[in-house]
Write a protein that binds this DNA or RNA. Structure first.
Lengths: 128, 128
DNA sequence: TAGGTATAACTACCAAAGTAATACTACCAA
DNA sequence: TTGGTAGTATTACTTTGGTAGTTATACCTA
């Protein structure tokens, strides 16, 4: 019931969430190192972000020795869905078909992907 | 070539763009009145926003008498695509099928919509 | 010609996201 | 027992989006 609808997450916050979703939990150092190793973010940036995210109710932590071990407290699905829905609502007035149509027409799509999509739809049809 | 990639627009900005895309051009008053008539935004809020959007290169204006007539200078498609792509990239690592799959599994979909989607895909297949 | 009204210009806030330096603290090792 | 190090805590600054009051201006009308 207490569905926290998250419709927007900044790029960094989302990336951090993704790290946490992948490994269940992680120290600041671990998150920092896992954030696309190419990027040069200061350690404190990540720490601050995690703090802010905790304040916002996205993550939480427990202490282990003198370190904090962070973990996500909102599910990947909840966030993904919230953001996707938000976009579909904003751009396509909630129309799923419009959204998919747009994606199909502006993106490269391989024969394989199309086949996969067909299967998806067939499946969905069955469960109706 | 000078494809301005717009991957993020706030809610208000997007709504304003949508008004402009719809009516080609509009004065501040017109935009203000067309922004979902229910909402009570101050006239100056809209004016300020348009100003900021002009600075950002999203819209422009010409003078007509003592009024400004604003018009979009980025196409709806460009924005829509930029935002959709951005989201697909962020949430689904660029995978179109993952994105569609997610949409299909978390949203209500009617038989009708599924049929429509099938048609879309069939069409796309032909043009491959 | 004086005053109201419409409009634009300017200024000012707030919140969220991002970024990071600096300061504090506690622990381990030499 | 002291100093480096790995952590957290604090503070701060920037940008962007959103919101709007206040001021200046110019035009139209009585």
């Amino acid at each position: 019931m207490s569905e926290t609808k998250i419709q927007r997450l900044g790029d960094l916050q989302l990336k951090i969430m993704q790290v946490l979703w992948n490994r269940q939990e992680a120290t600041v150092t671990e998150v920092h190192q896992n954030l696309e190793p190419g990027a040069t973010l200061a350690y404190t940036t990540v720490a601050t972000m995690l703090r802010k995210m905790e304040a916002r109710g996205l993550v939480s932590h427990r202490s282990e020795g003198r370190s904090f071990v962070y973990f996500a407290i909102v599910a990947a699905d909840t966030v993904t869905r919230g953001m996707a829905d938000h976009l579909v609502d904003r751009l396509f007035e909630g129309s799923l078909t419009d959204a998919v149509s747009h994606l199909l027409s502006t993106r490269e799509v391989s024969r394989d992907e199309l086949a996969q999509l067909e299967r998806l739809i067939a499946n969905r049809k069955k469960s109706l």
